[in-house]
């Protein structure tokens, strides 16, 4: 039970980080970014390349990856925004097609350059926390803490700085923001890059636990979408709450009710769907105006 809880927390922490990235692009720009999971994948794959460059010093390589990978991924995202999405005026339908195209391109790039195998990245440090009942990886505990710290940073950025103010203004009324001399194009490019960068950070954190693989983006994409909407669009706390809900639910259902894991997952999926049916604005979202 406790073990299921811990595992759920690790998944939830990483999921929250990925989802916050999606929530930003979704909330501010109103685009359905199907390629978000691929940004996550790119983060993990790049982390492998960076750590490979420092075979003797996993901690140094990892620290570097934590900085370099999100920046690279954010740069790719900004490029995609300026070259494609901006020209589509961020209209929903064409954006879906464009991001599906982007998904294919990124996936093929990873397959061709990185290869089809799942490749491991060494954790920066390796110690086990020996609990009375079982052992647990110390790195996993650190992932939870790091993700929380990053979420705190994002929250501070959004609510305490001018950048956050500009973003919120743009989200609420694009035209009005323009009237107040906000460079909306710049904001959009920045938000798209930031969202992708957050997904990449989440991936770098998780990659020593899971492995880098060129198809690893699919699950985070679906789960992030679910988390963002369940939590309530634009609500950071809601996203965190929903990530906890999704991360913990099927593990707990399975352990507590002795359901077979696949059945537990079905039940969890339906339950979460019903939450949305009866609370369409999400857990902590405001009712639609």
């Amino acid at each position: 039970m406790l073990l299921a809880l811990m595992e759920g927390l690790v998944s939830a922490a990483v999921l929250a980080l990925t989802a916050v990235g999606l929530s930003l692009t979704f909330g501010v720009m109103r685009v359905v970014n199907v390629a978000h999971g691929e940004f996550f994948m790119l983060g993990a794959v790049l982390a492998w390349f960076v750590t490979q460059a420092f075979p003797g010093a996993p901690a140094l390589g990892f620290a570097l990856a934590l900085v370099v990978c999100p920046l690279c991924v954010a740069a790719i995202a900004v490029l995609a925004d300026l070259l494609v999405l901006k020209r589509l005026a961020y209209e929903p339908a064409p954006t879906i097609v464009a991001t599906i195209g982007l998904l294919y391109v990124l996936q093929q790039a990873a397959l061709s350059l990185f290869g089809p195998d799942a490749r491991p990245v060494a954790p920066p440090f390796d110690f086990r926390v020996q609990l009375p009942w079982f052992g647990y990886s110390g790195y996993k505990l650190c992932v939870i803490l790091a993700a929380l710290a990053l979420l705190g940073l994002v929250w501070a950025l959004l609510s305490r700085t001018r950048i956050g103010l500009v973003m919120r203004a743009t989200r609420i009324d694009r035209e009005m923001a323009r009237a107040f001399a906000i460079n909306v194009d710049l904001v959009y490019a920045g938000v798209f890059g930031l969202g992708a960068g957050l997904a990449a950070v989440a991936a770098v954190l998780i990659v020593p636990i899971r492995q880098a693989h060129y198809l690893m983006g699919a699950d985070p994409l679906l789960l992030s979408f679910i988390v963002v909407i369940i939590g309530g669009l634009g609500s950071l706390r809601g996203t965190l709450a929903a990530a906890l809900l999704i991360g913990l639910m099927d593990g707990l259902l399975s352990t507590a009710l002795f359901l077979p894991p696949t059945v537990a997952r079905i039940a969890a999926t339906l339950l979460v769907a019903l939450v949305l049916v009866f609370r369409p604005q999400g857990l902590l979202g405001k009712a639609a105006a």
Binding site: M6, V10, F134, R210, D219, G251, S254, P261, R265
Partner: peptide, 15 residues
């Protein structure tokens, strides 16, 4: 112990 496909973390099955 049957582990669902798409599972990416296995620790909770081991108990």
């Amino acid at each position: 112990i049957a582990v669902p496909p798409t599972e990416s973390s296995f620790t909770r099955y081991f108990p």
